[in-house]
Nucleic acid binder design. Structure first.
Lengths: 132, 132
DNA sequence: TTTCAGTTTATAATGGTTCTAAATAGCTGT
DNA sequence: ACAGCTATTTAGAACCATTATAAACTGAAA
């Protein structure tokens, strides 16, 4: 399996569950956005044994910490994640709660002119809310 | 009271609770950010009768709908609101969960080059996450 | 194979937010 | 001022995403 190395290199044991979640998350042509519930559903559809919700939470957080996933700042009752870990931004369709990637070239460079003493910028996230 | 008109004009009855919440939110020199819990605490400190949590939720949502408050897109277990309703962005201090206003002049114009058919841009929010 | 820390799991607990239904309070017309 | 009506408030229950728990299991190393 191609994900065994990736996991080992991150200090994560390549368990059956993690490998299956890797398949669902990363064996895709395109990157995508998801909530935990949507991922749970996707896992049920693609894999034939069930993975506990707690494991899905644990794994997603572990992957996020390792940089294999990004969390997206949106106000919603659910947390959104992105398998696209490149630097980019999002449209957020208020009507259906769906996210759309905005390439960096679609936004242009963001120049933060103000500094906060003793603090580093970890990330800059632009969210463009869409309505009808 | 100076908020009676404001409320009436928005189709909101100027109840005692709403007027008191107006005082806490808008009788300040500077605008500020808050979560519902923080607002609840502030109300307890400034006002001597208690307002039910449900009323605080209702009122904050009503004010947001009328444009007297803005909701800020941050990933947190709690929802953040802002009494500064001008167009501006935020630093988000990951360590303590505090927000800091970024004036528009601190960021420069954001130019979204891509369009989505049939959709209008409702808002553009930039969140700059800070770490040590 | 034995051992042990890392992992998974079902389930309970947590906590922010929303719902409910009854009591109360503004508002309008008389 | 009063009656009548609807909006609003309220306490408490319900909801639901997420996290904690503690026992069972598993991968990896000796």
């Amino acid at each position: 399996m191609k994900y065994i190395e990736k996991l080992r290199n991150s200090g994560l044991r390549p368990t059956k569950q993690r490998l299956q979640i890797c398949e669902v998350l990363f064996d895709t042509e395109k990157t995508f956005h998801f909530t935990i519930n949507e991922l749970n559903q996707k896992i049920k559809d693609k894999i034939h044994n069930k993975i506990s919700l707690a494991t899905i939470y644990n794994t997603v957080h572990a992957f996020e910490k390792k940089g294999y996933l990004k969390q997206i700042s949106v106000n919603s009752n659910q947390t959104y994640f992105d398998t696209n870990i490149t630097d980019h931004h999002h449209f957020y369709n208020l009507k259906d709660g769906k996210l759309i990637d905005l390439e960096n070239s679609d936004v242009g460079p963001i120049n933060i002119k103000r500094k906060i003493d003793g603090k580093k910028i970890k990330s800059i996230e632009v969210l463009v809310k869409l309505e009808d």
